[in-house]
Design a protein around this nucleic acid. Sequence first.
DNA 1: AACCATTGCAACCGCAACATC
DNA 2: AGATGTTGCGGTTGCAATGGT
Length: 196
Amino acid sequence: MSLSFPPSTSLSDMDNKSCNTQEVEVRKGPWTMEEDLILINFIANNGEGVWNSLARSAGLKRTGKSCRLRWLNYLRPDVRRGNITPEEQLLIMELHARWGNRWSKIARHLPGRTDNEIKNHWRTRIQKQIKQSEPPPNQNFTVPENAGTSHTCDINEGVEPCSPVYITGNPEAFATPLSNESNDSCFWSMEELWST
DNA sequence: AACCATTGCAACCGCAACATC
DNA sequence: AGATGTTGCGGTTGCAATGGT
């Protein structure tokens, strides 16, 4: 698998949109490689959690939220990138039919996939396919009543449809966060990060 | 080659739940 | 019990890449 990397810019050539006031400037927009490295190495050495202070301690001019999102959706070592397989898509459809837009819940059953990725996949592909194939109501593929309305009743709440399905890849990788690997400080280089 | 439309995805926003004091 | 800070989630947006004309 090859990690495609989002268009990243260097720290110097972007931003400056951020105000130049005395307040702690907060960067927004695409993450740079430099920022990614800082975040990865900081988490490797200190573990994740308490994102606001992590962002500060790491010297990142990002909100804790932003750091968390970047880590969970992109930088975690167990994040699988690449196309959603037909098997995964089936599972997504099945779980969505059951739970509606509970993306994070659905994501837990697709090791290595993030809620954001699944959500995007659903909106850009599956939803389109469904529309194209069968617009009229009362179809065999039923959208749950609670679809689209988050936090409404979960009829099957608590009833796991199945144990996590490891379609490809190994489950251990999914269950083993980087921070557990060792307490020794470790340092990731760009080559190590994006070579596979 | 240039322009425009569409697509796909990373990232942000707002809100609610939860934790701590 | 209320205030404040943090986390997690789902919805939405912005924009680069791609395709079509």
